[in-house]
């Protein structure tokens, strides 16, 4: 009886796309993250369990998984927070990405879209010129600073229903990156950034549902970044025609 009280019932996705959940009994601790639970299973119950992590402190963005249906950075997600009072935990690989095995999702589509969104700096100066001075309170810098803490964890991408239904959609992280670059005073080709986010999979597909901003573990706001891109592309639409 006592053992049951101190045990968590954890269902973990096993296999590829056509896999299934396997249930483990994991010792409950007062202070325990979801990543601790997954690591316990791999170390003490089944060493073949595949998952991904690196820093364990919320910096590297590699340990994101679906926990009870929500995308989470597992190293910084307390079991008590994730279960929200329930006594069961269900852990699956990130949504909207192909499954490699068990809890490891294939991040390629996510990063391919970063490239597709044109997240490339277009320099204004060469290496022989002096570095341009940007003061921290410039409006563009303030806007850009809002999103530079993105750790590429793909939590927003997994939480986005538009990505789920429209595979071409670039997704919140890539578009937020484009918005950051657009606001960079040191970028020489802002129109190229706007062109990159104005295609069939671009920012205009966003339905403003806001899951990205709700789930972002670093409390960034991709929703507002995408709204910014929509606003600027709409304004430029007439300028370019005229």
């Amino acid at each position: 009886m006592e053992a049951a009280e101190n045990t968590l019932e954890v269902s973990v996705w096993r296999g590829g796309e056509d896999g299934e959940y396997q249930t483990f009994q994991v010792p409950a601790q007062e202070n325990q993250t979801i990543l601790d639970v997954v690591s316990w299973i791999q170390q003490y119950a089944d060493p073949t369990l595949t998952y991904r992590f690196a820093c364990r402190v919320g910096m590297c963005g590699s340990c994101a998984m679906m926990v009870n249906g929500k995308p989470r950075w597992t190293c910084r997600t307390h079991v008590k927070k994730a279960t929200e009072g329930a006594d069961k935990i269900e852990i699956a690989p990130l949504r909207n990405l192909p499954v490699i095995k068990d809890l490891a999702a294939d991040m390629d589509p996510f990063f391919d879209k970063w490239v597709k969104a044109g997240a490339v700096h277009h320099p204004t100066r060469t290496r022989d010129d002096a570095i341009e001075t940007i003061t921290p309170d410039e409006p563009g810098r303030v806007e850009a600073a809002k999103a530079i803490e993105c750790i590429n964890c793909s939590v927003c991408y997994a939480g986005c229903d538009t990505v789920a239904n429209n595979p071409d959609y670039l997704g919140p992280a890539a578009l937020q990156r484009a918005w950051t670059l657009y606001n960079d005073a040191k970028d020489a080709d802002r129109q190229a950034i706007l062109d990159n986010v104005s295609g069939v999979g671009g920012c205009h597909n966003c339905h403003t549902q806001g899951s990205c901003t709700m789930y972002c573990p670093n409390e960034l706001d991709p929703l507002s970044a995408i709204a910014g891109l929509k606003r600027v592309t709409a304004q430029n639409f007439f300028k370019r025609k005229g």
Binding site: N166, D168, S198, G199, V200, G202, H204, N205, K230, T233, A234, F237
Partner: peptide, 9 residues
Amino acid sequence: MLDLRLYMA
């Protein structure tokens, strides 16, 4: 499936 042109329209 919306590009800027359709979005503006």
